[in-house]
Computed example of a mutant assay.
Amino acid sequence: MPTPPVKGDVNPKQRQYEAMVRALSADLYRFAWWLSRSETVAQDLVQETFLRAWKNLDALRDAESAKAWLFTILRREHARLYERKRLEVVELDDTLPEDAAYASPERSGDAAQVREAIGRLPDKYRAPLAMQVLGGMSADEIAESTGQKAGAVMTQLFRARQQLKKLLGGRAAAEGGRT
Rank of each mutant, 00 (worst) to 15 (best):
Y82R: 06
E83A: 12
E83H: 12
R84F: 07
R84S: 11
R84Y: 10
R84M: 06
K85F: 13
K85Y: 12
R86T: 13
R86Y: 00
L87V: 08
L87T: 11
E88Q: 13
E88I: 11
V89F: 10
V89P: 00
V90D: 02
V90C: 03
E91H: 09
E91R: 14
E91C: 04
L92Y: 09
D93N: 15
D93K: 05
D93G: 04
D94H: 10
D94P: 15
D94L: 14
D94K: 07
T95A: 08
T95L: 07
L96T: 08
L96E: 15
P97H: 09
E98G: 07
D99R: 10
D99Y: 08
D99F: 10
A100Q: 14
A100M: 06
A100H: 06
Y102L: 13
Y102F: 15
Y102S: 09
Y102V: 15
Y102R: 12
A103K: 14
S104M: 11
P105R: 11
P105I: 04
E106Q: 13
E106S: 14
E106R: 12
R107M: 15
R107F: 05
S108M: 09
S108F: 15
S108R: 15
G109W: 12
D110F: 14
D110E: 13
V114S: 04
V114A: 13
V114Q: 03
V114M: 06
V114K: 06
V114P: 01
R115Y: 10
E116S: 15
E116W: 07
E116M: 02
A117G: 11
A117T: 11
A117N: 06
I118E: 08
G119N: 11
G119L: 09
G119Y: 02
R120T: 13
R120N: 13
R120I: 01
R120P: 01
L121E: 03
L121C: 06
P122I: 01
Y125L: 15
Y125S: 00
R126Q: 09
P128L: 04
L129S: 01
L129H: 00
A130E: 07
A130R: 01
A130N: 09
A130S: 10
M131V: 02
M131W: 03
M131G: 07
M131S: 05
Q132K: 13
V133N: 01
V133M: 10
V133L: 09
V133F: 05
L134M: 12
G135L: 00
G135P: 02
G136L: 07
G136W: 07
G136S: 09
M137E: 00
M137T: 00
M137W: 05
S138G: 04
S138W: 02
A139P: 01
A139H: 03
E141R: 05
E141K: 06
E141C: 03
I142H: 01
I142T: 02
I142F: 08
I142D: 00
I142L: 03
A143R: 01
A143V: 04
A143P: 01
A143C: 05
A143N: 02
A143L: 03
S145Q: 05
S145E: 04
S145K: 01
T146V: 12
T146I: 05
T146E: 08
